[in-house]
Design a protein around this nucleic acid. Structure first.
Lengths: 152, 152
DNA sequence: ACGGTATCTACAACGATTGTTGAAAAACAA
DNA sequence: TTGTTTTTCAACAATCGTTGTAGATACCGT
């Protein structure tokens, strides 16, 4: 995602108007690595702007997604999560316990689909969700298990 | 997923009662490769049993998932999809256009997370969603493009 | 067949998201 | 600056997928 100033420019040049609410949302998203839900963004924005509505947040998030400035993710936590990092190719780590989402910046060159297994699909991209426990949800100290290879 | 008869047995032995509605759902799911939503299962069941309710379908699907007989998937199509294939390890192909979901039976042994990239997560499993166009949604005949390697 | 108990249907409620509306504020020109 | 046009705002209600509640019904061990 670009800086708030660049986004302001981009909104103007694509015929969108720039409001205080939108700039507030730009600021909130800037550098956020938690993949917030719309509700979370709303809560953060509200701490700066008392009256901003949830609808406005949704609207602006959709605008940003449409411009490719953020990505809307569905990783099975019940809410759409928004990811301001659209520059590095990456996948996602999702905590089974608390739903935390983090970027896993890595590419996996060996994701070739075996001949004939694609059922006639023309595949354009692949998203990997790694599920496990985040540092905060791991059992503390003593009984930490050793990392295990990831299954299918 | 097991056969309807085996499921009947399994439901009884786990203290669940077996009703005509449930057996109808067992039958509907048997051999289904379309990863139906609850609504779809309901529609199919209804063609056999006029009065079966959507709630009953949800309940039975959850029971089956709890027993590990089917898997509940969220692949970003807005509804939970149910997969009776829990025996072969596999991933999923999702059509960007129509939302069709198919199994891709393959394992990817090279999904090791690079040292230090896991941000302290203890990763237990990985799910890959391949996105593209299904055969039905591909542009017809003439301008078919050649398969491209899948990106990140 | 009987009775205890789980399950059924219908209906209302829920959380996340989207549509609608009159009011307010941004962009642009004079 | 001021006026004019057009977009966006906030509040509210509605929608979608899903789950909770209730009384009626059906399963299944005896």
């Amino acid at each position: 995602m670009r800086t708030p100033d660049e986004l302001t420019e981009r909104f103007r040049s694509t015929g969108r108007k720039v409001t205080a609410q939108r700039q507030c949302i730009f600021r909130v998203l800037q550098g956020d690595v938690t993949h917030p839900s719309a509700e979370s963004v709303h809560a953060l924005a509200r701490s700066e702007m008392e009256t901003i509505s949830l609808k406005t947040v949704y609207q602006t998030l959709h605008d940003l997604a449409e411009l490719g400035e953020i990505a809307a993710l569905d990783v099975g936590t019940g809410m759409t999560r928004f990811d301001p990092n659209v520059d590095d190719p990456h996948h996602h780590l999702v905590c089974r316990n608390c739903g935390r989402v983090r970027d896993l910046v890595a590419t996996f060159p060996d994701l070739q689909i075996p001949e004939g297994a694609d059922l006639g699909f023309e595949v354009g991209s692949a998203e990997i969700v790694f599920r496990g426990l985040c540092p905060e949800c791991l059992p503390t100290s003593s009984d930490r298990r050793t990392p295990s290879p990831v299954g299918p």
